[in-house]
């Protein structure tokens, strides 16, 4: 398992409608953490979201790593007590190995993200 690294990006909290209509840069990964919250990595500029009260904050609060699917699924089968989505790509979040993990599942790789203060624990539990 690779070492987890901080993922630099932007945390945006805005009205769900503003997030629904926002167009993220092509090379960016936008993870919809909640109806009114998104984490976009790499970082983007503020004016993408149409909400004057939006919170747009640079954020490096997640640590993560891309994992090949076989390893990822083997780990998830024993550490994740909920059913993964079947479609790809897909975002999913919930307890994995007892930690609050965000997953971005693609056909040929899986991104694991965890709040940075739990990075050491996730590394140990994935080892």
């Amino acid at each position: 398992m690779p070492e987890l690294k901080l993922f630099h990006g932007t945390r945006i909290v805005a009205t769900p409608a503003a997030l629904d209509t926002a167009v993220w840069p092509q090379d960016a990964l936008a993870l919809r953490l909640a109806p009114d919250e998104v984490f976009v990595t790499p970082a983007i500029t503020a004016d993408i979201v149409d909400d004057q009260h939006a919170i747009v904050a640079p954020d490096a609060g997640f640590a993560g790593a891309w994992i090949v699917p076989d390893e990822a699924l083997e780990f998830l089968q024993r550490s994740c007590e909920w059913e993964l989505p079947l479609e790809r790509p897909a975002f999913a979040q919930g307890a994995v190995a007892g930690l609050p993990v965000k997953l971005w599942l693609e056909d040929d790789r899986v991104l694991f993200l965890v709040p940075a203060p739990y990075a050491t624990d996730l590394e140990e539990r994935m080892a």
Partner: peptide, 8 residues
Amino acid sequence: RLLNQTMS
């Protein structure tokens, strides 16, 4: 809008 930044 609320953003918890404790861990960030």
